[in-house]
Design a protein around this nucleic acid. Structure first.
Lengths: 145, 145
DNA sequence: CGTGTAAGGAATTCTGACACG
DNA sequence: CGTGTAAGGAATTCTGACACG
């Protein structure tokens, strides 16, 4: 049984991660001039860094840029694409919370890695595990030893 | 009901994300000269980029650097810290698989956001949902309408 | 409005050498 | 071994202006 260590969860919950405009542009396929223009309109916000001059962005902004681009590609105007991106904000924070709070430990079941996701309501004495094998991931209720 | 779109899953499964040595150093609190030395020893590997000269790193390398630093801080020598980091590699890919494969959609239950995680073995007609509220995340087996 | 480009300066990263222990 | 620093050049990003539609 392996506790899921804090630094591992940070792999997914990259609150402190930051990167420059070149990386953001390359990863999202949105040009630097677009990103600077969107910023001038208040649609995206770089992190403020005291030491340097260059813009730094967070993972939250990365996903925001991805979503704005997605809606732009769907044919929406920039202001509408931004509005639609705003509506998806909560979705991300919900997924993140489930992941960070419920991935308790990694066990081994039948020789396969399994994520212990803890108890399920109205299922006393049981715990939920996600077993990973080559066919994919299956969920099981097992006795909580 | 909101399908969890592919671009949202990419928020967590950042296969294509990349960033420079300054960002990696700032985020992990590992100096640039350490990172370059570790690379010269083959302990970490930048992504090869055709266009530029500057190093770019992946999220996988970020978590690797975090883990090496963690074991270094615990008092291990560099080669041992690297070996211990290697052993944790699988843990990350397991967590990632569970997340990407089992976060099916976002529903609303009792006015609260809930992640639909799909069926559980030996629980026909039911599905697993993770309900998020201010107190945290609880798992429930509910009828699959 | 929304985006691209050329221009010159500023911030960042590069390598190879050298220092220290 | 494992890391830091000074040095000069290379790659990256900055801003404000201008172009186009």
């Amino acid at each position: 049984m392996i506790e899921v260590p804090t630094q591992l969860k940070e792999v997914f919950d990259q609150k402190m991660m930051q990167f420059g405009i070149g990386d953001l542009s390359r990863v999202t396929q949105v040009s630097q001039s677009k990103l600077r223009y969107w910023e001038s309109k208040g649609y995206i916000h770089p992190i403020q860094i005291q030491t340097g001059q260059n813009r730094k962005y967070s993972m939250a902004t990365l996903s925001r840029v991805r979503m704005i681009k997605y809606f732009l590609d769907e044919g929406y105007t920039l202001p509408v694409a931004v509005k639609k991106a705003n509506e998806q904000k909560e979705t991300i924070s919900v997924l993140r919370k489930v992941m960070v709070e419920r991935f308790v430990s990694i066990d081994e079941i039948d020789g396969k890695p399994a994520v212990n996701m803890g108890p399920v309501e109205d299922q006393p004495g049981k715990k939920l595990v996600a077993i990973v094998d080559l066919d994919g991931v299956t969920m099981h209720l097992v006795d909580d030893k």
